[in-house]
C-alpha cells in the first residue's frame, strides 16, 4: 500500500495579535496547525524572538555579553544595541528593580526608563514586571499611559491583579495584555475567561502560561503547551486561542548548569557555552511545543533560535 499522509489542518486557529507599530511591528499567532507543522498548512507568522533587558543593566559576568554591550551607559543605549542583534524581533524590558523587597525603584523612575527605551528603538516592546502584583499594577498603568502609541505588551497580568491591569492596560489605554498563569491549562483558561468578561478583547491578549528550564520541571511546561494548542485547535476552545509568549532567559540563567563557575565545575567547560546551550535548548523546546514567541538574553542564542525558526518555515 502506498503511503498516505495524514494532514492535520484545523478549522480553528490561534488569534493573530499585532505588537508594536510601523515597519517593525510583528504578528504573533494566526496558525491553524500544530507548532511548526508547515507541512499541514502554511504558517503565516513564524514564532518570534525577543531580547531580554532589565532595568538593572546587563549581566557582565558573561564575556561576550559584556563585550556586546560595551559602551552602553543607559538602558536606552542597551536597547538600541539589543535591537541590532541578528534575529531580534522585539525587546522585553523587565523592571526587576521595581520590587519593593529589592531595590524598590519608584514608579516615576521606571516610567522614565520605559519612555527613553520606547523613544530609542522602533522594535515592538514588551514590558515585564517585578513579580510584586501591586507594584506591577501601578507600573503597567503608568507606563501604558506615558507611552500611548507603541502598542506595547504588558506581560504579567495575573489572577491577583487582572482587574487593575486589564482595566488600565487593556481597556483604558488599548495596549496588549499579557496573561500570566502557573503551568496549568485550567489556570490559563480561567484567567483568559475573567479578562474577557472584564471586557478585554480576546484579540488583545497574549498568554505566558509559565516557564521552567529544561531539566527542572520542564515536562509540565511541555504538556501544558501541548494541551493548550490541542484544545485551541482541535476543540476550537476560544478561551485558549491566544498566542503564547514564554520568557526563557529569566529562567535558564538561574540553574546550576548556567551559573556554576569554571573553577567549581572544570570538567563542564565554558560557563558561557553552558548558559547559551541551556537557553537554546529550552527555547526551541518551548517553540516546538507551542510558544509563539520566546525571550532570550545572549546574542548567540537569539541568532540561533531565529535561524532555527527560519529553517523550519
Amino acid at each position: 500500500m502506498a503511503f498516505k499522509a495524514a494532514t492535520q489542518k484545523f478549522g480553528s486557529s490561534i488569534n493573530a495579535v499585532e505588537l508594536g507599530v510601523g515597519d517593525k511591528k510583528i504578528t504573533l499567532g494566526g496558525e491553524n496547525v500544530f507548532p511548526l507543522y508547515t507541512f499541514d498548512d502554511a504558517i503565516a507568522n513564524s514564532p518570534k524572538v525577543g531580547v531580554e533587558l532589565t532595568d538593572l543593566g546587563i549581566d557582565d559576568t558573561l564575556p561576550e555579553l559584556k563585550e556586546f554591550y560595551a559602551g552602553c551607559d543607559t538602558i536606552a543605549d542597551q536597547a538600541k544595541k539589543a535591537a541590532t542583534m541578528e534575529g531580534a524581533d522585539f525587546l522585553s524590558l523587565r523592571f526587576e528593580g521595581a520590587d519593593p523587597n529589592g531595590e524598590n525603584k519608584s514608579t516615576e523612575d521606571c516610567v522614565a526608563i520605559a519612555k527613553e527605551v520606547a523613544a530609542a528603538v522602533d522594535l515592538p516592546i514588551v514590558i515585564c514586571g517585578c513579580k510584586n502584583v501591586e507594584k506591577d499594577s501601578e507600573l503597567f498603568s503608568k507606563i501604558a499611559e506615558a507611552v500611548p502609541d507603541k502598542n506595547i505588551l504588558f506581560l504579567a497580568c495575573k489572577e491577583e491583579n487582572y482587574k487593575n491591569v486589564g482595566a488600565s492596560v487593556g481597556l483604558a489605554y488599548k495596549q496588549k495584555v499579557g496573561a500570566e498563569s502557573a503551568v496549568d491549562i485550567n489556570l490559563a483558561k480561567q484567567l483568559n475567561v475573567v479578562l474577557t468578561q472584564l471586557g478585554v478583547n480576546a484579540g488583545d491578549i497574549v498568554c505566558n502560561v509559565g516557564s521552567a528550564t529544561a531539566g527542572y520541571g520542564f515536562e509540565y511546561v511541555v504538556s501544558t503547551l501541548d494541551r493548550i494548542k490541542s484544545a485551541a485547535l482541535s476543540q476550537g476552545d476560544g478561551d485558549l486561542q491566544m498566542p503564547i509568549m514564554t520568557p526563557v532567559a529569566s529562567e535558564t540563567y538561574n540553574v546550576k548548569e548556567s551559573l556554576a563557575s569554571e573553577e567549581d565545575a572544570p570538567e563542564w567547560g565554558s560557563r558561557e557555552a553552558r548558559a547559551v546551550e541551556m537557553e537554546i535548548v529550552t527555547a526551541t523546546a518551548c517553540i516546538a511545543s507551542g510558544s509563539n514567541a520566546v525571550i532570550l538574553k545572549h546574542p548567540q542564542s537569539v541568532a540561533t533560535v531565529s535561524k532555527f525558526v527560519k529553517e523550519l518555515m
Binding site: 528550564t213 531539566g215 515536562e219 511541555v222 567547560g269 557555552a273 546551550e277 541551556m278 537554546i280 523546546a285
Partner: peptide
Amino acid sequence: MDYAQALALYGLRQNV
C-alpha cells in the same frame, strides 16, 4: 556532542 549540550539535553530528555 559537547558537555554544554549534554547538560541541557539530558535534563530535557529526563524530564520528557
